[in-house]
């Protein structure tokens, strides 16, 4: 039997330029990267009302009217207030801990209605919306902590517990009022 002679030199790929190539690609991606802001305040717009159907009656006490004026002033039920107070006031309105006859009957009936002017600064509107959403988030967190001992965010969105808090206890009823003409 003849044994094949084996060459003992091992084939090698030159690897010294690998770092250079990788650096080049790295720099390309560094330059082209834009870290995206895909975060924001989610809302559902009301559908266009049907002319033939009367809107359902809403008791005055269940409605919190927020008006953001052209000058960027915030009025809660015609009472001027500062942006920082909005969250607490919305919370007391929704929860109504002292059963005030002027505030909402129960949290699930509360409706926050937001009205704006054509010259309202967008920034103020977003800040105000932020506070209202914040009020709801805090209330939901409280309810979740009291019932299940975990923050609301850690609940699974398909779970029964999530549904109970988000739909039955504190539904986010934020209504965007029809804008004034002119």
């Amino acid at each position: 039997m003849l044994l094949k002679k084996r060459k003992r030199t091992e084939p090698e790929i030159p690897g010294s330029s690998l770092a250079d190539i990788a650096f080049l690609l790295l720099i390309f991606f560094l330059v082209t990267t834009t870290i995206n802001v895909d975060t924001g305040i989610g809302l559902t717009l009301p559908p266009i009302p049907d002319e033939s159907i009367e809107p359902p009656p809403i008791k005055e006490r269940n409605l919190l009217k927020i008006l953001v004026s052209a000058q960027g002033l915030v009025l809660l039920d015609d009472q001027p207030s500062s942006i920082t107070e909005v969250k607490e006031k919305v919370k007391t309105f929704i929860k109504n801990p002292d059963s005030d006859p002027n505030l909402s009957e129960s949290p699930d009936k509360a409706i926050v209605s937001i009205k704006t002017d054509r010259r309202t600064p967008y920034n103020v509107y977003i800040n105000m919306l932020d506070e209202v959403i914040g009020a709801y988030n805090e209330l939901r967190d409280e309810a979740s902590m009291a019932s299940y001992g975990v923050p609301f965010k850690s609940l699974d969105e398909t779970s029964e517990e999530y549904e109970r808090i988000a739909k039955d206890l504190y539904p986010k009823k934020i209504s965007i009022a029809e804008p004034d003409e002119g």
Partner: peptide
Amino acid sequence: DFGLITDVTQELRHAGTLRINYST
């Protein structure tokens, strides 16, 4: 200003695209 934004959201309501998100 909010006027133009109102117009756009009104158009979105007419189109039926009701899920919106204000990017912040």
